[in-house]
Computed example of a mutant assay.
Amino acid sequence: MKHEAEQELIKTLNGQLSELPAVAKTMVQQYQMSAIVLSILCGVLFIAVLIGTIWLAHYFFKKGENQSFHDKVYRTDYTVGCIATSFAGGLLSVIMLSCLVINVIHACAPIASIIQSLLN
């Protein structure tokens, strides 16, 4: 029932979008622009986190590879740092990718997103 009401409201608004007042058009455009800006920001942060994760994992891997057996046993083992960096960076990358996808969806369908946020 709720899904059908959403679909009818979207059809009505899509059909009469040209007849909306200027204030409503401006609101939709501002909503869409904010989603675009947020998606660009999330995309840049996603790439930065991904590059940082790869660089740190490579750094810890090379550092651990150059250690002698004595250093690995009695001092810090860099393998743990490599694994922890990969896990944390991977988790942050997934979060940033999710935010990017959500904001792109909001930018592509602003009316449906506005209706969805109003109904929830």
Rank of each mutant, 00 (worst) to 15 (best):
L13M: 11
I102A: 03
I51V: 15
C108Q: 10
T85K: 06
G15F: 02
T53W: 07
S34Y: 13
T53M: 13
I40W: 06
I83G: 03
L91K: 01
L56F: 07
A22E: 15
G15Y: 09
E4C: 02
G64T: 01
H58V: 07
A48F: 09
V49T: 05
I51P: 06
Y31A: 07
H70W: 06
M96S: 11
L50E: 02
N120A: 07
Y74W: 08
L91N: 07
P21M: 08
G81H: 11
I83V: 15
A5I: 03
S93M: 14
A22C: 01
V49H: 08
G81M: 05
L119C: 08
T79V: 15
H106D: 14
A112C: 10
P110C: 09
F69H: 12
G81E: 07
L38S: 13
A84M: 15
W55Y: 10
F87Q: 01
N103F: 04
M27G: 11
I83M: 12
A109V: 14
K63M: 08
A48I: 04
Y78K: 00
V80A: 14
I95R: 03
T76M: 07
H58A: 14
A107D: 07
I111L: 12
T79W: 13
F60V: 06
G52H: 01
S86W: 13
G90F: 08
I105T: 05
S68I: 03
I54Q: 01
Y31F: 11
S113G: 13
A112K: 10
S18Y: 10
E8W: 08
S117Q: 12
Q32R: 14
I115R: 05
G52P: 03
P110Q: 14
M27D: 15
A109Q: 12
I102F: 00
F60T: 00
A88C: 08
I95H: 04
L118Y: 04
G15L: 05
T76P: 01
A109E: 15
E19K: 14
E19V: 04
Q30T: 14
N103Y: 02
L9I: 03
N120F: 15
T76Y: 04
E65C: 09
E65R: 04
N66D: 09
Q29K: 08
D71A: 00
A24R: 07
G89R: 01
A57S: 11
G90I: 06
G43K: 04
I54V: 11
H58D: 05
G81Y: 13
L9H: 02
M1H: 03
A109S: 15
